[in-house]
Design a protein around this nucleic acid. Structure first.
Lengths: 361, 361
DNA sequence: TTGAAAGCGCTAACAC
DNA sequence: GTGTTAGCGCTTTCAA
């Protein structure tokens, strides 16, 4: 960051104000912080002086230095915002976070990737004045950032993904939820089930059939947990296609791949690991002339609005997206208050809707 | 924000490191800042000591105080993130901003509204350690925040919306672009044209026919400029419906209202002031049994992807959404370098596609 | 190439 | 109620 302060002429400081008001700085400080008794007359004199000098209150940086708190909480967002915020789940997380943090007096600083790099710029991670940081799906490309932050002693709160030692986590039961979802499909008679997975690691530059070796190098537990849920419910391995992100276009590509075979080869159901992927799969299926759910059942995950599907409503696992952010926000507040919060596991709900039906034949 | 620092035992400071290395603090400082000559031997001793003590580099807050720079740029986002980030235009702005600011060493702090209030919490606006702030569509509910920031002496960069004295702006030619768009409709034979406008002021709690009194109290110039463009191209006033936000659902409501009349009363073209509103209008039209563009032409504004429309492609005004953010980011950098950047007006492009056609009859 | 000293602007003890 | 004093942790002259 650039060097010296520029802009408008030197701002007045508290001591100038105190001087102008004829009181001690400490007294003036009390006027602004409100944390101590000040006579009305004095208060007025100080405020008048502040007004006269155009003093807008204590310098936040000086105050932070003194108090050992910056009032800033970071959020690590691996991708470029343009992509990250296409995902309603990421947006909801942020929303929940601010809902909880803003009233507590904390601001949210984005530590995001950019076109040149996945993961936040190291320089920022090293230099941002953070009281704490929230990391979603940590692992993979976020790892360097996370370890820098850990080294710096910045308290870390995790949301889903890899568990880190000493990091309080907010998560959902990805495995259990997918087991339940898969049982629903099995009850409908589906046996040939394929999965479209989230990226197994960041950066999501890879797409294709998910083989064992690729699977072994996964750093994202979310995708793995959801995949295992399907397999455990079925009792055997399934064909899976790994997407390079969790968005519609990737689901579309995956759908075209998975549904290419003849009616007796291709899956009768596709389990997509996000609703957006599922939307893409539905689009692909329709292009291939398949009716949903008569010819193909499709399931999603998340429970977002899907206005892209016309009347079709996705069968999906609804997760409390905003609440995840809120819970993480509360953890931040607790940690900064000196507590060691317990991990939180939020509940999910299976929503059976019109995108699933009895297996064909 | 809470008081004292908590968490892991007191972090080592630069002076501890210097002491352990047997050098002066100032020398140790040079090792980390790299801004001065240090012998290799000394450097090594200092880094070793830092390693041994688990010192992760200079405290950002102390550094900021000394240097008079926090490395943080605020973005005022009037609404709750959950709504604001549904708008691809807002997301693209943020994306462009970070693209430009992250490499320059600045982080982005969100100053957003929340469920309880529109506009950022005053406490945050007063206490955040900002080097500068970017405000989109300032005016209305952001006004208090903006004036606080101004008072604090925080340099402000504006993106669209109300012009403020002394605030460098990034904008587009909303009026001119809409004139061109409307001419296209006129050439197609359209005479009965209705407009769906963006909210005329924040908070967007109002929806309904836009009458003169309401129009007179507008604080958002974007909606007004685009509306005037239509009127100036037509040479007369038009019926307009004010939406309470710029999203799909509002466009849908507006569409149902505007298209309720008989074929000879209802408009033959609807000019929506955002692509999302246009998508909603299209949905409404289809529900009412109207074919597009045979029975009704619909135009948007922005140039976002619209995967909600099937094969229909929106005729729209494409604006450089990300570039707006980049330009604003560059302005921030310039202002902090002591420059007084000139206002920037970015170009737009009319995209004629399949949602407009000859007027019926 | 290194060290000593000043001080960024503020708050929190403590004394009066 | 108000003033005095001592730093928060760092960078930056300036001198050696």
């Amino acid at each position: 960051m650039p060097r010296s302060r520029t802009g408008t002429a030197a701002r007045p400081t508290l001591s100038k104000v105190a001087e102008a008001a004829g009181v001690a700085v400490s007294t003036a400080s009390l006027v602004f912080s409100g944390s101590g008794p000040v006579s009305d007359a004095t208060r007025r004199r100080v405020l008048d002086a502040a007004d006269r000098l155009g003093y807008a209150g204590p310098d936040p940086v000086a105050r932070s230095l003194r108090q050992g708190r910056s009032g800033i909480v970071g959020v690590v967002i691996g991708e470029r915002l343009l992509y990250a915020f296409r995902d309603p789940v990421a947006v909801a997380l942020l929303d929940g976070l601010t809902e909880e943090l803003a009233p507590a007096g904390f601001g949210l600083l984005l530590l995001s990737g950019s076109s040149g790099r996945t993961g936040p710029a190291p320089e920022q991670v090293e230099r941002a004045p953070l009281d704490a940081v929230v990391v979603e799906s940590c692992g993979g490309d976020d790892a360097p950032a996370v370890s820098t932050l850990h080294h710096r002693g910045v308290p870390i709160i995790g949301v889903e993904g890899t568990r880190l030692p000493d990091v309080p986590m907010v998560s959902i039961d990805n495995h259990g939820a997918t087991v339940e979802l898969t049982r629903h499909l099995v009850e409908l008679g589906h046996r040939r089930i394929s999965v479209v997975t989230l990226p197994m690691r960041q950066p999501g530059t890879h797409r294709g059939p998910l083989d064992d070796s690729r699977r072994a190098t996964a750093t994202s537990t979310t995708g793995i947990d959801r995949l295992r849920g399907v397999e455990d419910a079925l009792g055997h391995a399934v064909a899976a296609w790994e997407a390079s992100d969790g968005l519609i276009e990737e689901g579309h590509r995956a759908g075209l791949e998975l549904l290419a075979g003849s009616p007796h080869q291709r899956p009768t159901a596709v389990v997509a690991q996000s609703d957006l992927l599922a939307v893409g799969v539905v689009h692909a299926a329709r292009e291939l002339g398949l009716r949903i759910p008569q010819d193909l059942s499709v399931t999603g995950f998340d429970g977002i609005d899907t206005p892209w599907l016309g009347d079709l409503r996705l069968t999906t696992v609804e997760q409390p997206m905003t609440e995840k952010g809120r819970a993480a926000g509360r953890m931040v507040v607790d940690v900064l208050a000196g507590a060691r919060p317990d991990p939180v596991m939020l509940p999910t709900t299976l929503r059976v809707r019109s995108s699933t039906g009895p297996a064909p034949e």
